[in-house]
Amino acid sequence: MLLESRSPAVDETVHLVRAAQQGDSDSFTQMFQIHYAGMLAVAYRLLGPGPDAEDACQDATITALGRIGELRDPTAVRPWLHAIVRNICLSILRSRRPVPVGVAGANLPASADDGPVASIERMAQRDWIWHGLKQLTPRTQTVAMLRYFSDNNSYEQIALLCGIPVGTVASRLSEARRRLAHILPSIQGERHDDIDALTTERHEEAGTILTAVANDVPLSQVERRWAKDMTMWWPSGRISTGLGSVFAVMQNNYGQGVTARLTGLVAGPGVTIWENTFLNPPDDPYHCPPGATWLLREKDGVVQEVRLLYAPPAGEPPTQRERPGPHPA
């Protein structure tokens, strides 16, 4: 039987994909450069020429970096990349609607493809990404972390968490995409910090605090890393001070049968993001929202400010409206 030989171009593609899957950032960069024009053409066909299409391709690149290990057939990398771009574009088209500040797609949650945390956690490239994020400005880094590594990640939700206009979120994300496109290839040969230790430490802390009341953990056992005058911004706009004010809310909730469970955490230099679900009592299933995202801002390893955003019930937009249960009356 005669076997058709593969072309040198196909062999090179296979080599680049397999090297990228082993954590070779240079190979991923070459692969991306080869296919970017085709990805952009897909975005242009669906969204039209302009910044939306370019942003979609940058989002797709970040997604592909996190999911490259899932590509079983290296020769299929071109349609695989095009499919990622297409899915992001279609999500934008389905969800586009006018918003008060005129930013298209501001209420669009990042698609599942925009949040490749599970894949990144299993791959060596994750440290490359975090090394790149650390070189962004703190404000730009924060919105990028929320957009790509949290569930409450629509432009409006990020705006509420950061206390900034939706238009500012859009401009900072655009800046983050442009910067990462230049930063990631330039740092491929540098030594990247391992985020495992920091993530493990912050994960343990978050889990302990969220379950402290239920487990009879005293405030003194967990407040070492928290400033005494830490500012807590509740979704209603209420401001309280110190971790003790958060404990008081948790004690009130627990007394009414509500508990919380940590579901996600992202740790970076100066910023930590918690995500949790609220478990309501059977006789009051809507006492608390489904969950919440916590944005912790730190200085020299000490938490100075926390902003809290509740996850809206299915079908409802994010809101700052006062809700019963998760905070003092």
Rank of each mutant, 00 (worst) to 15 (best):
T211Y: 03
V14T: 11
P328H: 15
V222Y: 04
L47E: 06
A110N: 09
P109N: 08
W294Y: 15
W130S: 06
W274G: 01
A106Y: 02
G105F: 01
V117K: 11
L81Q: 01
V143H: 03
A329S: 12
A118I: 10
S95N: 15
I84W: 01
G291A: 07
K228V: 13
L65R: 08
A267G: 05
A144L: 05
I129W: 14
P285I: 08
V302R: 13
R172H: 14
D216Q: 14
M1K: 09
S245W: 05
V266L: 13
A110G: 15
V166W: 00
D55R: 09
E305Y: 05
D59Y: 09
A181F: 03
A292W: 01
T140Y: 00
Q125S: 14
A292Y: 01
R191N: 11
A329Q: 12
E223V: 13
V271C: 10
V303H: 11
W294F: 15
A311V: 04
L198D: 13
T208F: 02
P285Y: 07
R172C: 04
S25E: 13
G268H: 05
A37L: 09
P312N: 09
L279R: 11
C162V: 11
A76H: 13
L309W: 01
P109Q: 07
H192T: 08
T140I: 12
L262S: 13
N253A: 15
W294G: 04
L295H: 06
Y310S: 03
F278S: 04
D151F: 07
P109I: 03
A159N: 04
